[in-house]
């Protein structure tokens, strides 16, 4: 069959029209999203807020970890959350009940958040409140280990949760997502004594197979919470993050 016109006459050709002209582009295919992400990042940096993009499969415990994070920080840092879900305001309401400022984005049928959605949310969700400027903004992405990895939102850090009720070979199955991680959190570790098919060491080995040295920490955010390492990691990242653009400027000048 002729690929150009779909007819079945054998041997005929459609000569290349003489007025064609090839333009070399060699630009990122996602330039419109990346442009919006850069704009978001500028806005975050001007406000001095550290932005953490939380990703995992559905049900790995992202919202629960955030609920416990507020308690674990004990008011030392002011946090806020942008929630991404296909439908419902449930997660944002859950966080608000715990006293955490939260804004819900419902994506409809979209399987990921993109930089434009975050930009729009920021217009309705100021990065300061009566308690002062937000220190850490969490973006809880749509539960999905595939699509969110392809979209820069303007965040500073990616955190990927891997719960003990999932397979410990998830990093090998979803290499793009786990390669993007600045930190992997093995969540629901309170369940480890009950599980015979999840090994934290195997999860680490699976992650090491992706060729980077992403740190791994363990959390339990259930009835007997232990999120000490997570809180310590957050406080350390916050401490090294420039508070404002002004603070950042001298560092870049001396470099």
């Amino acid at each position: 069959m002729c690929e150009t016109c779909g007819c079945s006459i054998p041997g005929h050709e459609h000569p290349e029209p003489a007025d064609t002209h090839t333009v070399e582009v060699l630009k990122g295919l996602m330039s419109s999203n990346d442009h919006a992400a850069a704009h978001n990042r500028e806005h975050f940096d001007r406000s001095g807020v550290l932005v953490v993009n939380l990703m995992s499969s559905p049900g790995a415990g992202k919202t629960r970890l955030l609920e416990q994070t507020a308690a674990g920080l004990g008011g030392r840092l002011n946090i806020a959350v942008i929630e991404g879900d296909l439908e419902t305001e449930n997660d944002a309401e859950r966080l608000r009940r715990g006293g955490i400022r939260a804004h819900q984005i419902t994506t409809g049928s979209a399987c990921h958040l993109d930089a434009h959605l975050i930009h729009r949310a920021l217009h309705e969700f100021p990065l300061a409140d009566e308690q002062g400027a937000v220190d850490i903004l969490f973006i809880e992405n749509v539960g999905n280990l595939v699509c969110p990895a392809a979209f820069d939102l303007g965040q500073h850090l990616n955190v990927v949760l891997l719960s003990t009720t999932e397979g410990d070979d998830k990093p090998a199955k979803y290499p793009v997502m786990f390669r993007a991680a600045d930190l992997v959190v093995v969540s629901k570790c309170g369940l480890l004594p009950m599980l015979d098919d999840f090994s934290v060491d195997r999860a680490r080995a699976s992650l090491a197979g992706l060729g980077n040295e992403t740190p791994v920490i363990q959390t339990a955010a259930g009835r007997q919470p232990d999120i000490t390492d997570w809180i310590a990691w957050l406080e350390a990242r916050r401490a090294e993050h420039p508070a404002t653009a002004e603070e950042r400027a001298p560092a870049t000048q001396t470099a």
């Binding site: 007025d19 064609t20 090839t22 070399e24 582009v25 060699l26 990122g28 295919l29």
Partner: peptide, 16 residues
Amino acid sequence: ELLLASIELQGIPDAE
């Protein structure tokens, strides 16, 4: 890589 490498355009006035 996630790159737009090139585009072949038709009917650019000069070429036309």
